[in-house]
Simulated assay, not measured.
Amino acid sequence: MMELDELRIFQAVLQEDGITRAAQRLHRVQSNVTTRLRQLEDKLGVALFLREGKRLVPTAAAWRLNDYAQRLLDLAEEARLAMADAAPSGRLRLGAMESTAAARLAPVLADYHARYPAVQLELQTGESRTLTVAVLDGRLDAALVSGPLDDDRLEQIVVAVEDIVLVAAAARGAPSLEELADSTLLTFGSGCSYRQRLEAWLRRQGVQPRRIVELGSYHAMLSCVACGMGLALLPQALLDSMPQMAAQVSTHVLPDDLSRAPTLLIRRRQARQPALQALETMLLECAWKGGGSLGAYANN
């Protein structure tokens, strides 16, 4: 019979890409990690990793097991906390889009730290696609991403509805579809939901942007827009939080199917912990609504 400790070791090896870093993360000797991993493989009757010298390559069976392992570990943690009737404490690993972290999260996290000092909250920023994968893999407990998402493994709660605007140089008027096609689009990487939204809309119009330049921060993006380098798609709330930068650019209304985007708090189904429940409650109390009601997105 599989043991929870074996599943924790298996996940550490999978997530850390090898025995050495997994042993460091678990504070175990490497030989113990290797032995317990082989014992798990013997119990299951399948190879979870292919050994190529010192390198371990996950098999298809390993990726199948990972989903079950996360569910079992989440359920065990939920049972432990239910029996302890614990107040929020321990580690909470939260992911967030950079725009959400910059424009909305700071006062919430400050209040959260004041209310729940026993919680060690870790924040990781990134693109929606990357954060979603991290939640599914168990590397994050929850994340704030742009939706909607179509994945039955996730619970999704709308905590904001963002007004999305097209940003151009201050002296520039609203670009036509032809001008959009001939413009440089300034974006994050391909995992950015706002970029995906804009590219999908352009494809529906039969337009292919002339050039896409990927940047690593909104400050850099707005600076480049202000200098006339190109156009960007941004949440209005982010511009409102950066008034000096916003004064150097112009904003333009987008078509209805581009102009509003729900921000979701996502977590694995059945993943329950007091620290996350407390944060969820605080986020809903904030009533982040962008330019309108959450009601239209309540069932996403």
Rank of each mutant, 00 (worst) to 15 (best):
M282Y: 04
R28S: 07
A237G: 08
I9V: 15
S259T: 03
T59N: 01
A160K: 03
Q156P: 06
V225G: 02
L198R: 10
A114G: 07
R21Q: 03
T263W: 02
C224S: 14
Q270A: 12
T125V: 14
Q248C: 10
I266K: 00
C192V: 11
Q208R: 15
L234M: 15
F188N: 06
L202S: 13
H27D: 15
R269N: 10
G138M: 05
R129P: 00
S250K: 07
V133D: 05
E285T: 08
Y297M: 05
Q120S: 13
P235K: 07
Q120I: 04
T59W: 04
Q39Y: 10
S146N: 07
V57T: 06
Q273N: 13
V133Y: 07
I212A: 06
S183M: 11
A82Q: 10
R38A: 01
T20M: 01
D74E: 15
Y194F: 13
D17Y: 11
S99T: 03
L81G: 02
L283C: 03
V135Q: 01
F10S: 00
T125W: 05
L72N: 13
A118S: 13
V13D: 00
W201F: 12
K289G: 14
A287H: 14
N32Q: 11
L177F: 03
R267Q: 10
L233C: 04
L222G: 05
